[in-house]
Computed example of a mutant assay.
Amino acid sequence: MPEALAVSGRDRDRFGVEGAEPERAMREFTDWVREAAAGAQPVVCGCPASYDWTFLSWYLIRFTGSSPFGHPGCPDMETLDATKAGPPLRAVAKGTMSREPLCRRRHTHHALDDAVEQAELFANLMAWPSRRP
Score class of each variant (00 low, 15 high):
T30S: 10
T96M: 12
R105E: 02
V116H: 10
C45T: 09
D114T: 04
A4I: 08
V43A: 09
G9C: 03
R12A: 14
Y51N: 04
M97P: 02
R12F: 05
A123C: 14
L89Q: 10
L125M: 10
A36E: 12
P72L: 09
R131P: 03
M1S: 13
H107F: 08
C74F: 05
A38R: 11
H110T: 08
A127L: 14
A37I: 07
A93V: 02
H107Y: 11
G86S: 01
P42I: 02
E18K: 07
A25V: 07
P129Q: 11
A6R: 13
A115D: 03
E100L: 07
G9N: 11
V33T: 02
T64F: 07
S67H: 01
L89P: 01
A127P: 03
D52F: 04
E3C: 09
R24L: 14
S98V: 06
T79F: 01
G86V: 05
A127V: 03
D13R: 12
A36P: 06
P42R: 00
V44E: 06
E35V: 01
R24A: 13
N124Q: 02
V33Q: 03
Q41R: 13
A85K: 09
F69C: 02
G9M: 11
W32F: 05
C103K: 03
D52L: 07
F55K: 06
R99G: 02
D52A: 15
G86N: 05
L5G: 14
A127S: 13
G46K: 00
T54G: 14
P75L: 06
P22M: 10
A123S: 07
R105I: 04
L80R: 03
S57I: 05
F15D: 14
D113G: 10
G16S: 11
C45L: 10
T30P: 00
E23K: 08
A4V: 13
R24I: 09
F69M: 01
S130V: 07
Y59H: 12
L80K: 05
D52Q: 13
L102P: 04
R90G: 15
W58E: 12
F63L: 03
H107P: 01
R62N: 06
W58V: 11
A115S: 14
H110V: 10
A38C: 01
P101N: 03
K94E: 08
Y51A: 09
C47V: 02
G70R: 01
W128K: 12
E117I: 07
P2K: 09
